[in-house]
Design a protein around this nucleic acid. Structure first.
Lengths: 111, 111
DNA sequence: TTTATAGTGAACCACATGGTTCAGCAAGAG
DNA sequence: CTCTTGCTGAACCATGTGGTTCACTATAAA
């Protein structure tokens, strides 16, 4: 399975509405810290922290260009998160699909 | 879009390796707090907190049976998380698919 | 060269998290 | 009824989070 710490950081990064909005905004193209901060009425420092969390999770990459910092979407990390959820769902669906088997199988620890 | 707070709680609940393990364990059938705590060598109180987080996120449901508490998997919340990720991925893929269109479209706010 | 602008870092704040211990309470077993 | 067991709640601790302000650096513009 994927590194647990990577999943930790990825899911934690996604667990904030502001950061999810940032990702959606970056889906429309790169932006600077200031451009990202403006619609939220947030300080540059505050926004930089969010970007840092996203960058740490590999969901965003940034690059200093002149005196501004361009932020872009990262690539593969959402795939990791999704594939974990899919794995888990397979577990869960298997349980539902075989409810009969489930009831007989777990009779002893189900009580 | 789905309630932001629900997504917050769902992703936050998933952002912890212990809790992901708990979900996988519950994928094999219901368990009590004690049964969940044992493999982690964790106190009952500690485990109860994790279960509470998962329950708050709707990923797990619990029911007091006698003096023990049965924990089971919840249902639809992982779907919410997955569908948000899918939505975001669609944004991102669209950007990659139409790179030309992207460059012309975002000329003004890209600088 | 001066000045305005974009971002950075440190320090601070209130509050959440992940864990513990300890004292209790409620249900089942003897 | 008594004892054991499984969970619960309160209190505590160290650390992280989401935000701020203020002082500073570095680049761009005049």
């Amino acid at each position: 399975m994927v590194q647990q710490e990577v999943l930790d950081r990825t899911f934690a990064a996604l667990a904030d509405a502001t950061r999810r909005q940032i990702l959606i905004r970056l889906g429309r193209g790169p932006a600077s810290i200031g451009e990202l901060a403006e619609p939220f009425g947030m300080s540059l420092t505050g926004m930089k922290k969010h970007v840092h969390v996203l960058e740490n999770a590999g969901l965003v990459t940034t690059e200093k260009v002149g005196r501004s910092r361009q932020c872009r979407l990262g690539t593969e990390r959402l795939e990791d998160a999704m594939s974990w959820i899919r794995f888990y769902q397979r577990l869960w669906e298997r349980r539902l699909d075989g409810l009969d088997a489930y009831f007989t199988l777990t009779k002893e620890d189900d009580r």
